[in-house]
Amino acid sequence: MTKFIGTGVALITPFNADLSIDYDALERLVEYNIANGTEYLVISGTTGESVTVTAEEKKQLVSFITKVNKGRLPLVLGIGGNNTTNVVSEIKTTDFSAIDGILSVSPYYSKPTQEGIYQHFKAIAEVAPKPIILYNVPGRTSSNMSPETTLRLARDFDNIIAVKEAGNNVHQYLELLRTKPKDFLILSGDDDLALSVALAGGSGVISVIGQALPKEFSEMIRLGIAGRAKEAYDIHFKLMPITGLIFSENNPAGIKAVLSSLNISKPSVRLPLVQATDYLKKEIADALKILGKS
Score class of each variant (00 low, 15 high):
Ala194Phe: 00
Gly101Gln: 04
Ile124Asn: 05
Glu216Val: 05
Lys215Pro: 07
Leu19Tyr: 01
Glu57Asn: 09
Tyr173Ala: 02
Phe96Pro: 03
Ala287Val: 11
Thr149Arg: 02
Phe184Cys: 02
Gly167Arg: 01
Ile246Ser: 05
Ala35Arg: 13
Ser143Thr: 14
Thr150Val: 15
Tyr279Leu: 08
Asp190Lys: 06
Asn33Tyr: 07
Ser265Cys: 15
Ile161Ser: 07
Leu61Asn: 00
Leu61Glu: 00
Asp192Val: 01
Glu175Trp: 04
His120Ser: 11
Leu223His: 08
Pro214Asp: 03
Gly189Leu: 09
Gly139Met: 04
Ser261Thr: 01
Leu288Glu: 11
Arg228Gln: 15
Val163Arg: 00
Ile264Asp: 07
Glu57Ile: 13
Gly81Val: 03
Asp190Val: 00
Val88His: 11
Ser268Val: 05
Lys230Ile: 15
Met145Leu: 09
Asn251Cys: 12
Ile242Asp: 09
Ile5Asp: 10
Leu29Glu: 08
Glu231Gln: 09
Ala198Thr: 02
Tyr40Asp: 02
Leu195Thr: 05
Val205Gln: 11
Thr141Arg: 05
Gln211Trp: 09
Asn251Trp: 02
Met145Ser: 06
Met220Glu: 14
Thr2Ile: 10
Pro214Ile: 08
Ser261Asn: 08
Glu56Thr: 14
Lys289Ile: 11
Asp18Tyr: 14
His120Asp: 04
Pro107Tyr: 03
Leu151Cys: 02
Ile102Leu: 07
Gln60Lys: 08
Tyr23Leu: 06
Leu41Lys: 02
Leu174Ser: 09
Gly45Glu: 02
Leu245Thr: 11
Lys111Glu: 15
Ala229Arg: 06
Gly227Glu: 11
Ala229Trp: 00
Thr46Tyr: 02
Phe121Asp: 07
Gly167Pro: 03
Gly210Arg: 15
Leu271Tyr: 01
Ser89Pro: 11
Lys289Cys: 15
Asp95Leu: 06
Leu77Phe: 14
Leu29Lys: 08
Gly78Ala: 05
Ala125Trp: 09
Ile132Glu: 04
Val9Leu: 04
Gly202Val: 01
Phe157Trp: 04
Val269Lys: 12
Ala123Glu: 12
Asp191Leu: 07
Thr47Tyr: 02
His171Val: 15
Leu174Asn: 07
Ser44Leu: 14
Ser104Lys: 12
Asp156Met: 10
Ser146Asn: 08
Ala35Trp: 13
Lys164Pro: 12
Leu223Gly: 15
Thr277His: 08
Leu223Val: 15
Val274Leu: 14
Thr7Gly: 08
Ser44Gly: 14
Gly204Cys: 04
